[in-house]
């Protein structure tokens, strides 16, 4: 039994570059999944039953099929359609679509929680339906769903490790390369485990602070 963390020192820069790639992929996917989630949430709360059904099928499907299968579907399937995009873009697209299914649920809950009086007031003021949605409903819904969206982001950071299986050298992929150079899998993966845990812990702290800041005028209602 031999445990020595110092062998990792020369590789820290390489791992940091992997972490940057993970961060970039997660940031882009977060934006993508919030956009996707908002669109799907609109569809799920719309008056049209066809739209509602389509949105429900999307959420149901992407929540109940493992992410790795979705990823392979896009990674191997898209070139078949003549769409040649690199692993990073494929990963971001897959993460956005899968994350969108989860984000839509939280945004939908945010929309449904809005006081009907606010919408009535906006209608009386003569705002168009589009304006009511983009200027009133969506900002309130996004503001109250910051915390659940934060857990979507945390899940996304953890899920992004799966992108290493499509040759993307993000944090986990870089760690695999370091293992193959140092032959010290235990040290590398223990550090990696703690790095992910620390990262998600910091993100959850930041999300709590953001949530408190955005909802400071209604602290007693949302805690």
């Amino acid at each position: 039994m031999h445990f020595d963390l110092s062998i990792l020192l020369p590789h820290l820069g390489f791992l940091a570059r992997g972490a940057e790639l993970t961060a970039a992929a997660c940031a882009l996917s977060l934006v993508g999944s919030v956009v996707m989630g908002a669109l799907v949430a609109i569809a799920r709360t719309s008056a049209s039953s066809t739209l509602r059904r389509i949105a429900f099928i999307y959420v149901d499907l992407f929540r109940n099929v493992p992410f790795i299968v979705q990823l392979f579907f896009f990674y191997y399937g898209l070139p078949e359609l003549g769409i040649y995009i690199d692993a990073f873009t494929t990963g971001v697209v897959a993460l956005s679509i899968a994350g969108g299914a989860y984000a839509s649920d939280t945004i939908r809950a945010g929309i449904l929680a809005i006081d009907q009086g606010i919408i009535d007031a906006a209608e009386v003021s003569g705002l168009s339906r589009r304006k009511i949605f983009t200027r009133i409903v969506l900002p309130i819904a996004l503001r109250t769903s910051v915390r659940p969206l934060g857990s979507v982001l945390i899940n996304m950071i953890l899920t992004s490790s799966i992108l290493s299986t499509i040759t993307l050298n993000e944090l986990t992929g870089s760690a695999q390369i370091v293992v193959s150079q140092t032959y010290r899998p235990f040290e590398v993966y223990v550090v990696l485990l703690c790095a992910y845990a620390a990262l998600t812990y910091l993100v959850s702290l930041a999300v709590t602070l953001l949530h408190r800041h955005l909802n400071r005028d209604m602290m007693e209602a949302v805690g």
């Binding site: 945390i154 953890l158 899920t159 490790s161 799966i162 290493s164 986990t172 760690a175 695999q176 293992v179 899998p185 235990f186 993966y189 223990v190 990696l192 485990l193 703690c194 992910y196 845990a197 998600t200 812990y201």
Partner: peptide, 13 residues
Amino acid sequence: NSPVLVQLFLVFF
């Protein structure tokens, strides 16, 4: 708070 994939690698490798 850590990816299952990394946990698998830790145990397997």
